[in-house]
């Protein structure tokens, strides 16, 4: 247990090392999530427009 808390202390630099990794993870996940979200939203919108067009044709 002591070893583990030693590890997380990062030689006294915990408050610099861990935020660096946390911000890295946050940045990567945020851009991925926003990209997937806008792709899905546009896919739905395009599908709606398609049905609207097909209904208009009938």
């Amino acid at each position: 247990m002591e070893n583990l808390s030693d590890y997380f202390a990062m030689g006294g630099y915990a408050r610099f090392v861990w935020p660096a990794y946390a911000l890295g993870a946050a940045g990567l996940v945020a851009v991925l999530w926003l990209s997937v979200k806008s792709w899905k939203a546009r896919e739905d919108e395009f599908a709606k427009l398609k049905t609207a067009r097909d209904e208009g044709a009938n």
């Binding site: 990209s35 997937v36 806008s38 792709w39 546009r42 896919e43 395009f46 427009l49 398609k50 067009r53």
Partner: peptide, 20 residues
Amino acid sequence: VIRLRAELLAAKIRTARFNL
């Protein structure tokens, strides 16, 4: 690639709206 799909869909949506 995900963003390219979204961008190309946006272009398709514009065309579809215009046609509609």
